[in-house]
Design a protein around this nucleic acid. Structure first.
Lengths: 218, 218
DNA sequence: AGTATATTGTGAATAATATCACATTAAAAC
DNA sequence: GTTTTAATGTGATATTATTCACAATATACT
């Protein structure tokens, strides 16, 4: 299965926006506020809530705390999520140091690498041999993993993860991986995201040069 | 403008797959091969090509080299793309070290940070003061930038970038930014991508537990 | 208390995207 | 040279996602 239902992604965005509203002292918000914060229409916001069975108050909008709570439950953030990471290269190390996951209730509990020189059992988040992954994952019933290895190694790592019982994978290797029926793989490819920006910059450039209305609308 | 037309993203994926096919010695490919590699249907592949005016050979498929070339032109990869980076934290430094961009014809030519202790004019990719950004960008006519700063700083950085003449931005800060009419902002939020995986893992878990067919199809 | 107002919630309408199905045609087989 | 075959390319169709429009209703105002 390949991920990406936009309504789920938007739900996360709403949650992030709500946390910002909260830190600004907001107690309630309207669909309009969220729409502006996230860059969608207010009907989109309400429709999304409707899909997930979230309701607010006619007039009165939504209570920020309640709404955050409801979204967190839907997103499975009521308990801390243990996650493993495979690959202790530049990307992997940056992810290890990144504070944002814990803030959101997701914790990288171990990192694995095939390179023996990278191992470090004593680190705050231990860096272990990939050989140990299966045992580690099974004994702790970990369900989610991150791949941050070169593209050539990615498929093998995914296979090992699934073999170990991992059900969901966030893949940063620049290759589109796919899992089995009952697993999720989310491929995030940062080169591709940059390429995408460049494409639109070029498209915009062409559009403004050829000032006439053209058929390639963005 | 907010990015993401899936056909453009898929085009990048096709290109990546083609490079792998090429390194395996393939001279021609069929829409089926690309479809399998990228995880879409073959009609999707052909439809995408049709949209971008790419054609192959009835029977015979597509010549790998020609196809890569055509896609590169569409994606604006015929000349090397100079990109700036703002933020020399964990994420920023990992991006600086990352080899994947150059391989794809995209080069981070400078990094900017507000923290004076992080500056390093002599580094291979210099880390300069954010104050210098505008001059740098304007003198080199740079059009694309990457934001890798904390969320609270992101909007201000975006404003400075656009002020300097940047037209396209890849934003890694966990906040949805939006640019002006004639600019592109691509928000990539890795926390959110991981959250998304967790959501589907939970959904799959529920689906398999409640074994009966249920209304939440994925 | 009654009226006006602002906002939700959602079916209906529309728009965007993906799939189907098949006519077309180049290559291979005979 | 003719037939068969295996692919492309694309209109037609189906599906999915978004927006519209407005009834329902809680709150604020008088």
């Amino acid at each position: 299965m390949i991920t990406t239902k936009n309504c789920v992604i938007r739900l996360s965005r709403y949650k992030n926006a709500l946390n910002r509203f909260k830190s600004l002292g907001f107690v309630k918000v309207f669909s309009d506020n969220l729409a502006d914060a996230v860059g969608v229409t207010s009907s989109q916001v309400r429709k999304d809530f409707s899909i997930f069975g979230i309701s607010g108050n006619k007039k009165g909008g939504y209570k920020v705390d309640e709404l955050v709570e409801k979204i967190n439950i839907i997103l499975g953030k009521n308990e801390i999520q243990q996650v493993i990471l495979v690959g202790a290269g530049h990307m992997g190390k940056a992810l290890l140091k990144y504070k944002g996951f814990e803030k959101e209730g997701m914790k990288i509990v171990a990192c694995f690498d095939v390179d023996p020189t990278k191992l470090n059992r004593e680190a705050q988040t231990p860096i272990l041999s990939t050989k140990e992954m299966k045992d580690f994952v099974q004994s702790r019933r970990i369900k989610v993993g991150i791949i941050a290895v070169p593209d050539a190694a990615a498929q093998a790592v995914l296979d090992q993860m699934l073999e170990a019982g991992i059900k969901g994978v966030l893949n940063f290797a620049p290759i589109t991986l796919r899992g089995a029926e009952d697993t999720v793989v989310n491929n995030v490819n940062i080169e591709l995201e940059l390429e995408n920006v460049i494409y639109y910059v070029n498209a915009l450039g062409k559009a403004s040069r050829a000032n006439e209305n053209q058929d390639f609308k963005i």
